[in-house]
């Protein structure tokens, strides 16, 4: 059995090239294991994401990227492991987290409006019976405005395109007014304009001192979008600043045969991989 460390920071020293991350990291995971059946989907993963930066969780399909995020949040049960948010157990820090689930995880035919969905981001704040009006209603409107969806406030959500749906989900996370933003595949199946709009909002969050962790699948944009990268294939493969950890060797180790050599060449041209 792994020895229990007094602080989360202690263990991060062994990550090649990664700076020591303090125990108050926005998100730190220790010994996280998740299983959907016999085979573990995520096995004994340690991870720690730095503050005031944009981190990507990358890995091949079925490598447990989303599972890691969802299990950390408690959306799916974990077999073992601890999750700390800013040094506190996650259960005590839920108010400091905003979450954008995968767009395809909900039924967009649900009878509700764009505004209603954004207001769900305020449910923690208003409680069960608190009044959702005045200043708080204004907050929801501002959040819609920030993703360029203010004109759609009263649309039924089923009438939106995929990109618009993703922006509404982002607006709902903004309404949570958190310090840590966790996003599950925010760019999956969205148009180029939406991708641009989303990355602009996320970069603005970073500039405001917030931390962003996103499950990401497009290797060609890792370098331009993110500062920090975490590579997973059931187990933790590598972790660190993009310059240090996003290397051909690490990618090959993580993706195995599934990453075509041509793809890697392309990446090294686009992103300047060594």
């Amino acid at each position: 059995m792994r020895r229990q460390q007094p602080t989360i920071a202690a263990e991060n020293g062994r990550t090649a090239g990664a700076a020591l991350i303090p125990a108050t990291a926005p998100l730190a995971v220790r010994g996280l294991t998740v299983s959907y059946g016999e085979k573990p989907a995520v096995f004994s993963v340690d991870a720690s994401f730095p503050a005031e930066s944009m981190s990507a969780i990358i890995g091949p399909n079925g490598a447990g990227k989303s599972t890691l995020l969802k299990a950390a949040l408690g959306v799916i049960p974990r077999l073992s492991g601890e999750v700390y948010v800013f040094g506190e157990p996650i259960e005590k820090a839920r108010a400091r987290i905003a979450y954008v689930p995968q767009r395809a995880s909900v039924d967009w035919d649900f009878p509700t409006t764009v505004m209603d969905v954004v207001q769900m981001g305020l449910y923690r704040k208003v409680g069960l019976l608190g009044r959702l009006s005045g200043r708080l209603a204004g907050v929801a409107r501002d959040c819609l405005d920030r993703v360029g969806m203010a004109d759609f406030a009263h649309r039924q959500i089923g009438q939106l395109s995929g990109g618009q749906q993703q922006r509404v989900f982002l607006a709902r996370a903004l309404a949570q007014d958190a310090e840590l933003y966790l996003l599950d595949e925010p760019f999956a199946g969205v148009d180029a304009a939406t991708e641009r709009a989303i990355i602009d909002v996320l970069k603005l969050l970073k500039d405001e001192g917030k931390s962003v962790v996103a499950v990401h699948h497009d290797l060609s944009t890792v370098r331009s979008y993110f500062d920090h990268v975490f590579l997973i294939n059931v187990r933790r493969m590598a972790e660190g600043p993009v310059d240090v950890a996003f290397t051909t060797e690490n990618l090959q180790a993580t993706y195995g045969g599934r990453l075509a050599a041509t793809h890697l060449d392309e990446l090294s041209v686009v992103g300047g991989l060594a």
Binding site: D116, V117, M120, L128, L129, L182
Partner: peptide, 22 residues
């Protein structure tokens, strides 16, 4: 009526509701 908001959010987006701690 009392649980309206919880019912609505847990029905529309269960994962998000759990992430909120509902």
């Amino acid at each position: 009526l009392v649980f309206w908001r919880w019912l609505k959010i847990a029905t529309f987006d269960e994962g998000f509701a759990q992430a909120l701690g509902i």
